[in-house]
């Protein structure tokens, strides 16, 4: 585990619950993890294990009642540590023996606390690239909008002017290896292939210059060759930008390639934390669930090995 004082993201004992017709269900149960600057932390786990929820909590984007109910999330941004959940207990109250949350008050607080962190502190790319780009804006406009939003936080004299911003937007499209960046700049998402959309999305997200990028199954909807391209691209850009990444996937091979450390989740709990080196090591002791994941991916043989 990395040191608390140097990590960009530090999540401790995060609890997320939802009210369902069958009562309250805890979908994330005291999950802890941390990410150091420039590090890639992989989150591995089956569907419904709470991977998306744990990372969305970091962005304050959990929608649904009651949502985040406990724990600590620290985000370090420009040398300053932001405790996102430090005020949470003030919004919790007991009612008929159950803990409830003041939803509106919390939402307001969350938006205020996150306002300076969204984009520059942390941002995300999602599974479905087509649905995560605005269908009515050209790709160029969207990259440009990220840059504009980022520049809006800077003091006036260091801001890039409009022209420099459009040049940077075009550069981003080149950096994500678009074949014809000029044409893509003026294209709408429906005119692009899935892989191009995901690369555009990477450009939009990284143009915010985040300290942490959350990549939530960015390759799931893509075919094998495009997947490899996207994974390589992400790795290169993350290294260049010195940006930390939380990488969520079902695909253990991608994980081994990209991640420095991996946490394995199931039913809302962290089962195991391993470094990628250890995971590659066939001889070492593994949690039985991690073993089944490795076996399913053909990474290790059955019981006879």
């Amino acid at each position: 585990m990395s040191d608390h004082t140097t990590s960009v993201v530090d999540v401790r004992d995060l609890v997320i619950e939802f009210d369902t017709p069958r009562g309250r269900s805890r979908v994330v149960d005291e999950v802890s993890f941390s990410v150091s600057p420039g590090e890639v932390l992989g989150i591995l786990g089956e569907s419904g294990s709470g991977k998306t929820m744990s990372t969305q909590a970091l962005l304050g984007l959990i929608d649904g009642y009651p949502g985040v109910m406990g724990g600590q999330i620290d985000l370090t941004f420009q040398g300053e540590r932001h405790s996102l959940l430090s005020e949470l207990p003030h919004f919790l109250f007991e009612k008929r023996g159950q803990l409830e949350k003041q939803e509106r008050g919390w939402r307001k607080h969350r938006f205020k606390a996150m306002a300076s962190l969204w984009g520059r502190g942390a941002t995300a790319i999602f599974q479905n690239p087509r649905r995560s780009l605005d269908p009515l804006m050209t790709v160029g406009q969207q990259v440009l909008e990220s840059i504009t939003a980022r520049e809006a936080h800077k003091p006036d004299d260091t801001k890039l002017n409009k022209e420099a911003q459009s040049i940077e937007a075009l550069e981003w499209l080149e950096r994500v290896k678009m074949v014809n960046p000029k044409r893509v700049f003026g294209s709408y998402p429906h005119e692009l292939s899935g892989g191009m959309c995901q690369r555009a999305m990477i450009a939009v997200a990284l143009a915010c210059k985040p300290s942490v990028l959350i990549a939530d199954e960015p390759t799931t909807g893509l075919d094998a060759t495009v997947r490899a391209q996207v994974v390589h691209l992400l790795q290169d850009l993350i290294r260049d930008e010195r940006c930390a990444m939380l990488y969520i996937t079902h695909d253990i091979r991608e994980m081994l390639y990209l991640a420095d450390r991996v946490i394995v989740m199931r039913h809302g709990k962290v089962l195991e934390r391993v470094s990628t080196e250890d995971l590659k090591d066939r001889s070492s002791e593994r949690h039985p669930y991690t073993r089944t994941l490795l076996e399913a991916a053909g990474m290790i043989g059955g019981d006879n090995e």
Binding site: L61, F111, W118, R131, S132, V204
Partner: peptide, 17 residues
């Protein structure tokens, strides 16, 4: 639209609400 991925993405990228 509030539940659409791309609106969430806009929020996450720090566009003003």
């Amino acid at each position: 639209l509030g539940a659409e991925d791309y609106i969430l993405a806009h929020v996450a990228h720090g566009f003003h609400p």
